[in-house]
Amino acid sequence: MEQVIDIQHLNKSFGTHEVLKDINFSVNKGEVVSIIGSSGSGKSTLLRCINLLEKPSGGQIIYNGENILDDLHDIPAYRRKLGMVFQQFNLFNNHNVLNNCVVGQIKVLNRSKDEAEKIAMKYLKIVGMDKYINAKPKQLSGGQKQRVAIARALSMEPDVMLFDEPTSALDPEMVGEVLKVMKELAESGLTMLIVTHEMEFAKEVSDRVVFMDKGVIAEEGSPEQIFNNPKQDRTREFLKRTLKQS
């Protein structure tokens, strides 16, 4: 299968605190990979290293065959290929819903205004927010904001979508609407890398599940294998703990 992102020996330290230790894994085209693990295990840091919001301390990130950590690489150009959805939505406060999805297309991809609006409307419709194009972010509920944030990322038509706990800041009754959108995207064949605490969801949509613990990938495998027959004790304990909570 065609590898989109290949991570080799990735390390990340904040000062002396080693947060990621020798991470090796890859994402194939069209694959949906979920990353699970307890709080502080380094899931967000891994995702943020992949789109270089954090600078890795060591290792390589190979994107479509190119090492993007070499000095000469055009970082903004690389980031355009990755869509990022944040836990805190991070919609642009100064733009309405439509312009949140349009501004990047115009300024970064040099699309015309008409074309950008057409593309934005297409994705806003997919996430069910096409009726709210005039609303400002502060006028929306959390679930609505997150759906717009997904549409904003999709409007850039990225190769891979990264989701960092997209439902963790939402009230329980809004989690479903966002997961539903993500499930549809997963089924449409989009390449997705999802950090999540929603175990049922991970089990349902993922092609592969990665379990992280204390900065390393402790185990990875198919959802059936990870959730039904975990090989590692720590995976089993983590699943027992989280399933008890919910």
């Binding site: 903004p76 980031r79 990755l82 944040f86 805190q88 991070n90 642009f92 990047g104 300024k107 904003r152």
Partner: peptide, 19 residues
């Protein structure tokens, strides 16, 4: 988060500032 979201869609410092 506003800076990060702008960077994540590929804006450079100047574009992030202006837009």
């Amino acid at each position: 988060g506003q800076f990060e979201a702008a960077q994540a869609i590929g804006m450079n410092h100047f574009q992030t500032m202006v837009n």
